[in-house]
Design a protein around this nucleic acid. Structure first.
Lengths: 225, 225
DNA sequence: ATTATCTATAGATCTATAGATAATGC
DNA sequence: ATTATCTATAGATCTATAGATAATGC
């Protein structure tokens, strides 16, 4: 019997020893990412995942303890990617000389791109939490952390802000932008006037709304873009 | 064999002849509304629904052709309720003497209440569309219609609006409010600063944001509330 | 007499495992 | 020698139906 293969760092995924092991695991996760997003976790059978990953169902179960483990490993993979991106993006050094408008502009652009390339992120997170409620705080916490860092970047430039309560205003503006982005990109949401605008126009309007709410004084827009 | 019992107006639901038939059907739909919202359609078995509705699985299948039919009938029931409410709420006669701020205030309050009493509405709609893609436009169309009527109510008061493009501004403001409401009430969304505000504060801020975007001239707020 | 309800179960998945076969890399 | 892959299948649901029993209301 030897040691329990599931007692690795990620207890739900086998620690592969060969090269093809890692490749197969990633193919399985890619397949799951696609299918869980398109059809949902419950409506996707492990057989479906195996087929899409071009391997057998036995192989899937060799690498993942059970179906749930696939979803959890997928969430883990996405989380790592997201945190890596955030660490880079939020580095204060990157933003020397940039104004609030620049930062918000970049945030909007980044979110638009991210929503296109990783449409299944939110779905995967929700599924993971449903399957393992002990994860319940992980995703919100991660987002809250990103929000906090972003807010700090803005507040470091509070001289630009005309709003009487800069701390509140920054938080509110970020919530507002996130809400707008979701309204536009979440496929679960009705198509509205927001989705009829071009990406460019949408970004423009969102930015100008945010700037006017903050009552920015010097509109030093996009001088590094 | 007689005539096909499913060939009624709602082809997925049996036309009940007795009193208890209607009661049972409604109990089944109530059960489905609860369980589909809590666990999702796929994760809920027909057995679960029968148990929650306090009837047998055979009874469920007597009234509904298959599991899918339950979800479609539920969507149908919710849609009818929603349209009825809308018809009343949007009646222009109801709004004689009211200003834009009054209307928006009421819209926000109504949405808050509705989100509490019918949390499963959106979920049910999404499930219905997933099960029968030919319904794909029904829900967005309904929302678009409601939006249009609301927009008309606002535009009938365009004298109050200072924004240079009132038509665009009204559409944008409604999208904005809907996005904010979703960000606050959609359980699928992270808790943010928005959810930490009290309902009253939240409504206040949202309203004031909307009014300032429209550049309302006479702020005749809540003179009938 | 007709309609609604119940119990029991056939048949179709779907998850997960067992055991045989093939590939890897020390 | 060890690790990964495959095929075949046991066992657990879950959907949907058949057929018997009970309630309704003309």
């Amino acid at each position: 019997m030897g040691k329990n293969p599931w007692q690795s760092e990620l207890h739900w995924r086998r620690e592969g020893q060969q090269d093809r092991a890692h490749k197969t695991q990633n193919r399985v996760l890619d397949a799951a990412e696609t299918l869980f997003f398109e059809q949902g976790y419950d409506a996707t059978s492990v057989q479906d995942v195996a087929k899409q990953a071009k391997c057998s169902i036995g192989s899937v179960y060799h690498h993942f303890r059970d179906k749930k483990a696939i979803a959890l490993a997928l969430f883990d993979r996405m989380t790592r990617e997201f945190e890596l991106t955030m660490r880079e993006a939020m580095d204060p050094a990157r933003w020397n000389g940039a104004g609030i408008a620049d930062i918000l502009h970049e945030f909007i652009e980044f979110s638009i791109i991210n929503n296109k390339t990783r449409p299944g992120f939110k779905t995967a997170a929700l599924e993971a939490v449903r399957l393992d409620p002990s994860l319940g705080d992980h995703f919100p916490q991660m987002q809250r952390k990103a929000n906090k860092q972003l807010k700090a970047l803005l507040l470091a430039r509070r001289r630009e802000i005309g709003h009487p309560d800069p701390a509140f205003a920054c938080g509110y503006v970020l919530d507002l932008l996130i809400a707008l982005l979701r309204a536009r990109f979440d496929p679960h949401v009705q198509k509205s006037q927001l989705s009829r605008l071009s990406n460019k126009k949408f970004a423009e309007r969102a930015l100008s709304l945010a700037c006017s709410f903050l009552q920015l004084e010097r509109q030093e827009q996009a001088n590094h873009a």
